[in-house]
Nucleic acid binder design. Structure first.
Lengths: 139, 139
DNA sequence: GTTAGTGCAAATCCTTTGCAAGCCG
DNA sequence: CGGCTTGCAAAGGATTTGCACTAAC
């Protein structure tokens, strides 16, 4: 898990032309460092504990702003209707624990996709998404 | 696109212990034959045209029943918050046209995934999901 | 006649939006 | 001052649910 100092967070925001407001910094602290594939709801629960005056709308606004700034990615997975945010903005895949819903990041080294003949006639391939699903091995 | 006769549809339902009611048969006709990755909404729009008395709740109930019976699969894709139904119940992957939202089925021949080292320690791999995303080639 | 299926409307969940008020440059 | 940000509450879209009604064994 990456860990940025408050100063580093502020710097990253400024770099991307996002004003580092009093609400955005704590949200970033959680979302970019501490959290692991959180939902908006997870973020709200965390801010409720730590920064009680922060509103749900601001959570959503900030998350959207961060996604727009390229500091965060949003995913939608088959197992949940909620949007899931990922501070890992490098291309990667996921492994889903079907029991707990926990997600593991998989880098390109772990998964190889060969999609040569898969792109329909007249189309250009843009991105590849892979989700492996499984569960804890029973023994 | 598969095409079943009304009799075949009825038989498939009965085989899976799903009562072939007056509402379910038309829904199946659309969903199992005519439709291409429809949403619940698509189904409702179709029944509104062809079987006006059919309620939204029945559409959802029927879709859920069909999924439970293994006649239909449901998917959730990153580009849409709606559930998408697929009459192709054999394992396969998808190509998404990011502009139109249209989905193409890809069989295992088209895409090869090597996931050897990707499964986290202590986990067993269950299924693999792949979505390729792209758009029409500009020329 | 009992059980399963249907229709309707209300409810729920997640997310977005409108708008008035606050803050910062 | 003027624009961006915030908070609140209301609205919105997708799906589910409660319940009375109907239909099929």
């Amino acid at each position: 898990m990456k860990c940025f100092t408050p100063a580093e967070i502020e710097q990253r925001l400024v770099e991307r032309s996002v004003l580092p407001t009093a609400q955005r910094i704590p949200i970033c602290r959680y979302v970019l460092c501490e959290a692991d594939h959180p939902t908006a709801d997870d973020v709200k629960r965390w801010t409720d504990k730590n920064f009680p005056k922060l509103s749900l709308a601001t959570v959503y606004n900030t998350l959207k702003t961060l996604v727009g700034a390229g500091l965060l990615r949003e995913f939608r997975f088959p197992h949940s209707e909620k949007v899931i945010y990922d501070s890992n903005v490098v291309d990667h895949f996921h492994f889903l624990d079907e029991e707990s819903g926990k997600l593991f990041d998989l880098s390109g080294e772990h998964v190889e996709v060969r999609a040569k003949s898969a792109v329909p006639e007249g189309y250009t391939l843009d991105t590849i998404e892979v989700v492996l699903r499984g569960r804890k091995t029973k023994r």
